[in-house]
Design a protein around this nucleic acid. Sequence first.
DNA 1: TATGAAAAACCAGAACC
DNA 2: GGTTCTGGTTTTTCATA
Lengths: 162, 162
Amino acid sequence: MIDRIDRRILSILQEDCTVPVAEIGRRVGLSTTPCWRRIQKMEEDGVITARVALLEPAKVNAKVTAFVAITTSQHSEDWLKKFADVIREFPEVVEFYRMAGQVDYLLRVAVPDIEAYDAFYKKLVSKIDISDVSTTFAMEQIKNTTALPLSYVATEKPRTGS
Amino acid sequence: MIDRIDRRILSILQEDCTVPVAEIGRRVGLSTTPCWRRIQKMEEDGVITARVALLEPAKVNAKVTAFVAITTSQHSEDWLKKFADVIREFPEVVEFYRMAGQVDYLLRVAVPDIEAYDAFYKKLVSKIDISDVSTTFAMEQIKNTTALPLSYVATEKPRTGS
DNA sequence: TATGAAAAACCAGAACC
DNA sequence: GGTTCTGGTTTTTCATA
């Protein structure tokens, strides 16, 4: 499904999607059109989901990261659906996971400072009933990449013969 | 520094950076060149840091997310530098934060399954001395966006008169 | 000094080998 | 998978207010 050449193409695009197709082809040893067709196919197949611009958190005044661990007594399908809808309304919530173990849900929230987090938190609890909330703040983002590891991709032999 | 028009441009590019500049201009009420120049300036100023392709975790066999809370007795500058260097070597670690509070560091790790996480974990602890590690797994990614909230941007009046 | 129009350079996408 | 060509997009230049 995805061969080694595709994987190298993905690796390039994950880092920088402004690289021209011709240049990508050159790097992976392919001419423009076949390289373009591979990218096209991976978009159709849903391997590549989007191409987006990344912003510097400090420059848009959202450099403080808060992790919000939520425990609730509510566990119904309906409640989760409502909860998810509420959360999705908040642009401050950049990640939202349903967890295994003690904590039920984990949020990553991007805000300018602790005060803004507090305001966010008040708005959140006013909209949804969550029994137990525990927040921790990040002092520093040492690494934060959108690039997923590609070492686990089930690689077949490259489609090209030569 | 960033006005309301810039903010709308950023909002578009955060969602999809393949939108042609002429189309972005049309949406924000600007012709191509001034719109292009604003984008150019925000790249120079480091507001826009990169344009990347996002991949579907399941399709690249990295859909399991593990959160790794690390507590250590080591707190020197040197130790952190070495630790950060080791962590950066692992493509599985997609996020890495220095935390306030009980936990010293928090990692988000992307792997195919629990077994792969275990292998990753063994490799990690063989390379660096970390006293206390606590891992929790996400069952489901309900929301995960690279788009930062733009509501906190210190907006000035639009540069253009009209 | 900032804007918009128009031209030039460049790249994506289609047809064909 | 490669080559060639066309249409569209980005980027530069230039005229204008």
